[in-house]
Design a protein around this nucleic acid. Sequence first.
DNA 1: ATTACAACTGAAATCGATTTCAAAATCCTA
DNA 2: TAGGATTTTGAAATCGATTTCAGTTGTAAT
Lengths: 337, 337
Amino acid sequence: MATIKDVARVANTSPATVSRLLNGGRVKKATETAILKAIQELDYRVHTMARGLKTKKSYTVAYIVPDLTNMFFAQIAKGAQEIFHQAGYSFMLLSADNNPEREEEILRFLLSKKVDGILLSSVTTSNQQVKEIMEDIPVVLIDRVLPDLEADTVLVDNVNGAYLATEALIAEGHRRIGIICGPQELLTGRERYRGYIRAFEDYGLALNESLIKFGDFEISSGYAQMCELLKQPERPTAVFVCNYYMCLGAIIALNEKNIKIPEDLSFVSFDDYELSQVYNPPLTAVEQPMVEIGEEASEILLRRMADNSKEKIVKRLKTKLIKRGSIKKADSLQLNG
Amino acid sequence: MATIKDVARVANTSPATVSRLLNGGRVKKATETAILKAIQELDYRVHTMARGLKTKKSYTVAYIVPDLTNMFFAQIAKGAQEIFHQAGYSFMLLSADNNPEREEEILRFLLSKKVDGILLSSVTTSNQQVKEIMEDIPVVLIDRVLPDLEADTVLVDNVNGAYLATEALIAEGHRRIGIICGPQELLTGRERYRGYIRAFEDYGLALNESLIKFGDFEISSGYAQMCELLKQPERPTAVFVCNYYMCLGAIIALNEKNIKIPEDLSFVSFDDYELSQVYNPPLTAVEQPMVEIGEEASEILLRRMADNSKEKIVKRLKTKLIKRGSIKKADSLQLNG
DNA sequence: ATTACAACTGAAATCGATTTCAAAATCCTA
DNA sequence: TAGGATTTTGAAATCGATTTCAGTTGTAAT
């Protein structure tokens, strides 16, 4: 493979001049033509490792996700990739596979790869390693915050999203509203739960502990907790499921027990994917602006890489309730309208 | 950040010795201890760019997918990531976003990044660039083959998968069986179509052109082509949809027209994701061993990187028909059993 | 023609590792 | 303990770029 020296030799000039041209410096027109011709001829490409060694920049950023096959993170990655591509950065997507040790390894790897910036949706709850890394490399947190860590962060207004979902059920007259919460170690889990509680408070309704179940955002727990809900002596008339995967599990449980949405049970979930439209009836759901999250985070990271001085930004994006056909008016409807 | 020189100084030895230890060479026990201590103390990490410059290896491989958010490729990536992680390689996942030019750019980028190997599910149908790259870097093709290109390839037995699906419908007495094919530019599109045809031939049944529709593997075309099928004067009693996304579109169409699976229409699709189990009734589908595809391809690439001599491998993995509840016996059933 | 100034250019140092090869240290045997 | 064999070591060259800085060339003004 041709090097900058070869190009210089063929173009009858020096490596310094070739480098200058490559990096937008000024070069006599004639020299430029000769160099360009040589580059073409030799099919020369800069050796980014050599360049990076000298410049201490890799023009590469990475996004570490908990799970590659999780649609939420895949969509965010899509948004991020677009922005970095436009900015001339190369973008690596890495999955920690829900394994904290793997995440640690990846972080070490990125450090020695000398990436210029990191987007992180962490699977850990400890911030030690990240804290250290942030001294060398800008990091933007996405969706998963770390305790007591002052860092740029992009997330979604979970409280409001959950509030909207719960409110929609209340508005149709439901009072026995079950919830399948996410894990309370995660901020998103806590916040969505809080949105539910707040809606009850605002409408002056009493919470019923037996209708509040905790899952872990995975299909299996959606299934298990929905079964729990259905076992209650007084079944809920509606249920709010706090993420997509638990929603899948919940629906499997419903199908098994032959419980129909919305005739037998009204249904809302957090996250809006294809399923929501494909299901019959289409599901009312809280939509997160996933691609935007990725874009926003990337832009923050880009700014941060250019100038690491300013104080940290926390950006919250709005969620939206998409009304479809999975909520029915409660039978015992006694509204004032 | 500490360099190998710093480590050498602190450990009171030379960079050469440190390097030797780092790379598994022999070093006196005492020296080793001193070096390890120094590394710890200084929090030293090898600078992979510097190393790569010298060794001409990056210990990095990349997988280029058409679309990050396509479950099929995401699952393959998951399998691949695991294998490379075990082998000590770092793994980059890059999306061409269904854009041939973007793919070209990525390929160029990887070349200058000096990755050691490439996994590719190409969005193009031209092999020129890939052919050139293969002279420098081992490439393994996944699912998407390129015309006239002799390369290691991993794919799935599409013909058989489609045959199984079609056969399952025939076995239940269906004769008017619609198909929504994938794009015929893609091998998978062609092969699945061929499996359908072959089943008809083997069972001595006549094909009905009006029930053969062509989509592009996207949701929208699944919707559109299903609408077309339903417009036929004599509706099909069963339909085989050639991938997941078209299956989503098809089901939306069915819901809209209030056509029930399997009462009004029996249904089989290629690809088996969560939806198949969540849908009511659960869908009969052809499962592809996605994670295995990724693993298999990675292992081939690993071998290829170690020894680029042997002749090219084409590996076909088996598909499996998962029977669930979306096929009903045909009304006009007149079988010999 | 001379000077002043701007525009270009290239030799050499540098980034942080690896690797070669000869020298130094250590071990072993007689 | 001498001498040879074996281990262990480090100086220096190298990978392919960038960057500095001094020198060269070109231009304009006097």
